[in-house]
Amino acid sequence: MANVLFSIIWLIILIFIAFWIAGIAAGFYILILPFTVCIEPLSGLTDFLLQVVQFPKYCAEAMMEGRGF
């Protein structure tokens, strides 16, 4: 029963939090990525933003597995 509960919690996180955060991060990622060619230290920021954009995938995997926090 705990797996079903965790899956529902992950679904709620996916819909109400992960999609919004990933969408905002994707916009910044697209804007900043071309500047990493000229400004090398920005590559760390773009790597972080890419991980944030992939947060919905993490939530979906956790939801399907019924994984806890």
Rank of each mutant, 00 (worst) to 15 (best):
M1D: 09
M1L: 08
M1N: 15
A2D: 13
V4R: 03
F6A: 15
F6E: 08
I9V: 14
I9A: 10
I9D: 11
L11D: 02
L11F: 15
L11Y: 11
L11V: 13
L11H: 04
I12S: 11
I12T: 03
L14P: 01
L14F: 15
I15W: 13
I17C: 05
I17Q: 08
A18S: 10
A18Q: 03
I21F: 01
A22D: 11
G23D: 06
G23V: 04
I24V: 14
I24H: 08
I24L: 10
A25K: 05
A25C: 08
A26S: 12
A26K: 09
G27I: 02
G27E: 11
F28E: 06
Y29L: 15
Y29F: 10
I30T: 02
L33K: 08
P34W: 00
F35T: 04
V37H: 03
V37I: 14
E40W: 10
P41T: 12
P41L: 07
S43Y: 03
S43E: 13
L45G: 00
L45Y: 06
T46Y: 02
T46V: 15
D47M: 10
D47Q: 09
D47K: 14
F48M: 03
L49K: 04
L50M: 04
V52W: 07
V53P: 00
Q54P: 01
F55W: 10
P56S: 12
P56R: 02
P56I: 12
K57A: 06
Y58S: 02
Y58I: 13
C59Q: 03
E61C: 05
E61P: 00
A62R: 10
M63R: 07
M64K: 14
M64C: 12
M64D: 07
G66T: 12
G66Y: 11
F69E: 07
